[in-house]
Every structure is written in structure tokens, then in C-alpha cells.
Amino acid sequence: MALARELLEAPELPEDIDFADLDEEARRDLRTLPRGLAETVGKHLVAAGGLIDTDPEAALVHARYAKTKASRVPIVREALGLVSYHAGHWAEALSELRAVRRMTRTDQHVAVIADAERALGRPERALDLAKEVAGRPLPREVEVELRIVAAGARRDLGQLDAAVVSLQGDDLDPAKRDPWSARLFYAYADNLAVAGRREEAVRWFLAAAEADTDEQTDAGERAEELANPKPADEPVEGQDDSSDEQA
């Protein structure tokens, strides 16, 4: 009951929210609604987008409210699914993005759906989804992201060599500078590290760092840690060793 009341009450919108800030495609999708309702829903979607990085739970309140007003509009369900995913509400993200997939008959968010399955402890389902869409014409960035998720699922299952091999391909080239290159190089390096192939992992973390012009990963730090590991018996800074000595 408390949740129902919360969803019926409109969360307060920031003063600078403007319907025009919503991207054109989203505004077009909202045209199926009466104009006033479309603007209300659109403003809450703008608020959710603006809060997703700083306060994902607050973003979630706006996205959930938008759904109560326009649950049959795919862009609204998509927004809720992506905000839920970002906030770590895996089951809700999965439910919403599956609904979007049914409504639009597209695989635009298949990698996010697979990753939500993995986050819920179901790596086999993530791999089944990857197999299901294999051969379909996916956008390149979605195809690469799905490969990264599938590699992670294989790693969850202890298939370390398979995880490494599954990321290999023409786009795994340190000279590449595609929008997804840094993430792909990083994922490859991470799986190499877990597989115990440290020297290769260092090289690929360095490649990821060079490709990561926006500095969105810690690839450089990971390379440094692997290249210069601390001795196993080196005391942690601030730790008192006296407790291990015999009185």
C-alpha cells in the first residue's frame, strides 16, 4: 500500500526541467498521449535522466511515476528499465526491458537483459540469450557489449579459457578507436588476468588505458597493479604485526 501511494503521488520536479530537453525520438513516442500528459511524463523522464548518475534512487522514483501514467509507451518502460539497471534493481530492470523487447520486437537492449540475468546469478540464461540472437543484425555496439556480458557469464561458470577466446575477433586490435574499444580491451584484459595470463593482461590494460580518452575505467591502475604486484608478505599500511608474535 505504501508503495502504491508513493507511485500515485507525483515526485517534485526540479525547477529547470523542460519537456524540450527530452530527445526528439522520445518526444515522438509520447505523441500517442494527450499533450498535457505527454509533457508531464516527458518531464519526469528528463528528471530521471538528469538524476541517474548522481542519485539513481531518486531517478527511479521519477521513472516509476512515469510508468504509472504511460505504461503502454515503450520509451517509458525503456527508461524505467535502464534506470532500474543503473540503480542495481536487477529484477525490475529485467522485467521492464523484456517488456520493451516484446513491445518493440527489437534486440536493442539484449546485452543489458543478459547482464541483469547474470547479476541475478543466472549466467546460463545470459548465455542462452546470446545464443538466441546470434546471427541477428544487431547494432555493432550492442553485439560487442553482449560478447562482453557472455564472457563474464562464462567466467562465472568457471570457463576461464572460453571467456578469453569469446572476446577475440577483428575488433580486438589495440590500434582500434571505436566507441566500444576501451571497454572491449578492458574486458579482455580482465579475463586474461583471472585466467592467470598476467603479462598479456598488462598489455591489454595498457591498450585499454590508451583507448579510454574519457578516463571512464581504471585500466592504467590495473596495469600498474599487475605489473608491480606487492609481495604477499608485505604488511598492509597501518597494520600492527605484533598480534602475530608469541607473548
Rank of each mutant, 00 (worst) to 15 (best):
M1H: 12
A2Q: 12
L7V: 07
E9G: 14
A10N: 05
P11S: 08
L22D: 03
R27C: 06
R28H: 13
G36S: 13
T40K: 10
G49K: 04
I52L: 12
I52K: 10
D53W: 12
P56C: 14
L60N: 05
L60G: 04
V61F: 06
Y65P: 05
T68N: 03
A70N: 06
S71C: 08
I75H: 11
R77C: 07
A79H: 09
L80W: 03
A93H: 02
L94I: 02
L97E: 07
R98N: 12
R98Q: 11
R102I: 10
M103R: 08
D107M: 08
Q108W: 09
A114R: 03
L120W: 00
A126V: 02
A130E: 06
R136A: 10
R140P: 03
R147I: 07
V149F: 05
A150P: 00
A151G: 06
G152V: 01
A153R: 07
R154I: 02
R154C: 03
D161K: 14
A162W: 04
V164I: 04
A175W: 08
W180G: 00
Y186S: 02
Y188R: 09
N191H: 15
N191Y: 11
N191T: 15
N191R: 14
V202E: 05
A209G: 04
E210N: 02
D212I: 02
D214G: 09
Q216L: 15
L226M: 06
P235R: 01
P235M: 06
Q239A: 14
Q246Y: 11
